[in-house]
Simulated assay, not measured.
Amino acid sequence: MDRNDSFREFVAAHQQALMRTAYLLTGDAHQAEDLLQSALLKVFGRWFRLSRVEYPEAYARKVLLNQYISWRRRRVRAELPTADPPDRLYSSEDSTIVRLVMRRALMRLPPRQRAVIVLRYYEDRTERETAELLNCSVGTVKSQAHYALARLRELAPELAPKLSDLEAEEARR
C-alpha cells in the first residue's frame, strides 16, 4: 500500500468526526469544509511520518484546532448589532431552539474558549486531553472553560440552566 492509499483510508475513517469538530468550531458548513481541507493538506504533508504513528487522528485534530485558531486571529471580527433583541417566544424545552441559541452564543466566544467548550462538552474529552490538543496546561483549560461558561450565560441567559447542568456534571467527574 502506498502513501496515498493509506492517507485515503485515514481520511475515510476519520473525516466525519473531524468535520463535526470543524463545524462546531466555525459554525458554518462551508468554512468547516475549508478548515478541514486546509488541515488535511497539512497532515498529508507529514503523512510519511504520521502513517507509522499509533494515533494519527490526534495529530490531525491538533492541526485542525491550530488552523482554526490561526484563522480566527487573522479574521476581522464582525458582529451584527441590532437595536431590538428578539423576543423569547419558545419554551426552554425546545431542544432545536436551544441548540440554535447555543450555536449563536458559541460563535461569539473567543477562539480558544470556543475550542475548550467544543472539546470538553461536545466531544466529551477530559481536561488533560483538551490541554494536550490545545497545547496548554490543565489549569488553562479549567479557567478558559469557566470564563467561556460565564460569557455564554451573558450572551444567552436562557441557557443558564443547561450550563449549570454542565458545570454540575463537571464537578462530579
Rank of each mutant, 00 (worst) to 15 (best):
Y23D: 01
S91F: 10
V101N: 09
Y55I: 06
G27K: 07
A12R: 06
A39N: 05
E129K: 06
S6R: 10
L25T: 01
Y90H: 14
E129A: 07
R46L: 13
R20T: 10
R75Q: 15
A145S: 07
A156W: 07
K42P: 09
N135V: 12
L166F: 05
L159I: 00
F48I: 06
D28H: 00
E33N: 05
R103T: 06
V118D: 05
E158R: 03
H146W: 09
R3T: 12
A60R: 07
H146T: 12
Y59I: 14
A150I: 12
M102E: 13
Q144M: 05
S143W: 07
W47M: 03
A115E: 07
T26A: 07
R77C: 02
L25W: 06
A145M: 05
D84C: 14
R73T: 11
E33M: 02
A156Q: 00
G27F: 02
L64D: 01
P111H: 00
S164K: 09
M102G: 09
S164I: 13
K62C: 05
R72V: 06
A168E: 13
Q67V: 09
I97Q: 11
L50P: 00
K62T: 00
F7S: 09
D165V: 14
R3F: 08
V98S: 12
T140G: 01
R8W: 00
Y147R: 15
Q16L: 05
R104H: 12
E169Q: 05
R125A: 11
D87E: 13
L119I: 01
Q113W: 05
N66V: 04
Q15S: 12
Q37E: 15
G27R: 11
R120W: 03
P157V: 03
S164V: 07
A29N: 03
P157D: 11
L133H: 00
L25E: 02
A29L: 00
E123Y: 09
R99A: 15
M19P: 03
S38G: 14
T82G: 15
L50W: 06
Y55N: 15
R99C: 01
V116P: 09
N66T: 05
Y23I: 08
S51W: 09
V138C: 02
R114K: 06
F10M: 02
V138P: 01
H30Y: 09
A115C: 00
V101M: 10
V53S: 11
Q144R: 06
S164R: 13
R49K: 05
V43P: 04
R46W: 08
